[in-house]
Simulated assay, not measured.
Amino acid sequence: MKIKNSLRSLRARHRNCRVVRRRGRLYVINKTNRRFKARQG
């Protein structure tokens, strides 16, 4: 999982990426291609 300051560029890497808020943190998750994961905060 990447830890990034900006998640917008990571969301654009794949069309199924979603930005999700959990426990005060922002995550990029992808159900179809699980390689694309990122966290902010």
Results as ranks from 00 to 15, higher is better:
Ser6His: 07
Lys4Phe: 02
Val20Ala: 07
Leu7Asp: 00
Cys17Thr: 09
Arg35Met: 06
Arg8Asp: 09
Tyr27Cys: 01
Leu26Gly: 04
Arg35Ile: 08
Val19Ala: 04
Leu26Met: 05
Arg39Tyr: 07
Lys4Tyr: 01
Lys31His: 14
Leu7Tyr: 05
Thr32Met: 09
Leu10Val: 07
Ser9Lys: 03
Ser6Gly: 06
Gly41Asn: 10
Arg11Thr: 01
Val28Cys: 11
His14Pro: 06
Asn30Tyr: 14
Arg39Gly: 04
Arg35Ala: 08
Asn30Gly: 12
Arg15Gln: 15
Gly41Gln: 09
Arg35Asp: 06
Arg18Gly: 05
Leu26Ser: 04
Lys37Cys: 09
Phe36Ile: 06
Arg15Pro: 15
Lys4Asn: 02
Arg21Val: 15
Arg34Met: 00
Arg39His: 08
Lys4Ser: 00
Lys37His: 11
Leu10Ile: 08
Ile3Asn: 12
Gln40Asp: 08
Ile3Trp: 11
Ala12Tyr: 01
Arg15Cys: 14
Val20Leu: 03
Arg8Ser: 10
Lys31Leu: 15
Arg13Lys: 14
Asn30Leu: 14
Lys2Met: 09
Arg22Ile: 06
Arg11Pro: 04
Arg22Ala: 03
Arg25Val: 12
Ser9Thr: 06
Met1Trp: 11
Lys37Ala: 10
Lys37Leu: 12
Arg25His: 13
Arg25Pro: 06
Arg18His: 13
Ala12Phe: 03
Arg18Ile: 13
Arg22Thr: 00
Gln40Asn: 13
Arg34Tyr: 05
Cys17Tyr: 03
Cys17Val: 05
Lys2Asp: 09
Arg25Trp: 09
Asn16Lys: 12
Arg23Leu: 13
Leu10His: 05
Leu26Lys: 02
Met1Ala: 12
Ser6Ala: 01
Arg13Ile: 08
Met1Tyr: 11
Ile29Gln: 08
Gln40Leu: 13
Thr32Tyr: 10
Arg23His: 15
Gly41Met: 07
Ala12Ser: 08
Lys37Gly: 07
Arg35Val: 08
Arg35Trp: 07
Arg35His: 07
Leu7Ile: 03
Arg23Phe: 15
Tyr27Gln: 08
Cys17Pro: 02
Arg34Gly: 03
Arg21Leu: 15
Gly41Asp: 07
Phe36Ala: 03
Arg15Met: 14
Arg35Cys: 02
Lys2Leu: 11
Ser9Tyr: 01
Asn16Ser: 10
Asn30Arg: 13
Arg15Thr: 14
Gly41Phe: 08
Lys37Met: 11
Arg21Trp: 13
Asn30Ile: 15
Ala38Val: 02
Arg8Cys: 07
Arg34Thr: 06
Asn30Lys: 15
Lys31Ser: 14
Arg13Met: 10
Gly24Asn: 12
Ala12Thr: 01
Asn30Thr: 15
Cys17Asp: 01
Val20Trp: 00
Arg11Asn: 02
Arg11Met: 05
Arg22Tyr: 05
Ala38Met: 04
Val20Thr: 10
Cys17Asn: 11
Ala38Gln: 01
Asn33Arg: 07
Arg34Ile: 07
Lys4His: 03
Ala12Leu: 04
Val20Asp: 00
Val28Pro: 05
Arg21Phe: 12
Asn30Glu: 14
Leu10Lys: 02
Ser6Thr: 05
Leu10Arg: 02
Phe36Gln: 01
Arg25Met: 12
Asn33Thr: 06
Arg35Gln: 08
Asn33Leu: 02
Thr32Ile: 13
Val19Leu: 10
Arg13Tyr: 03
Gln40Thr: 10
Lys31Tyr: 14
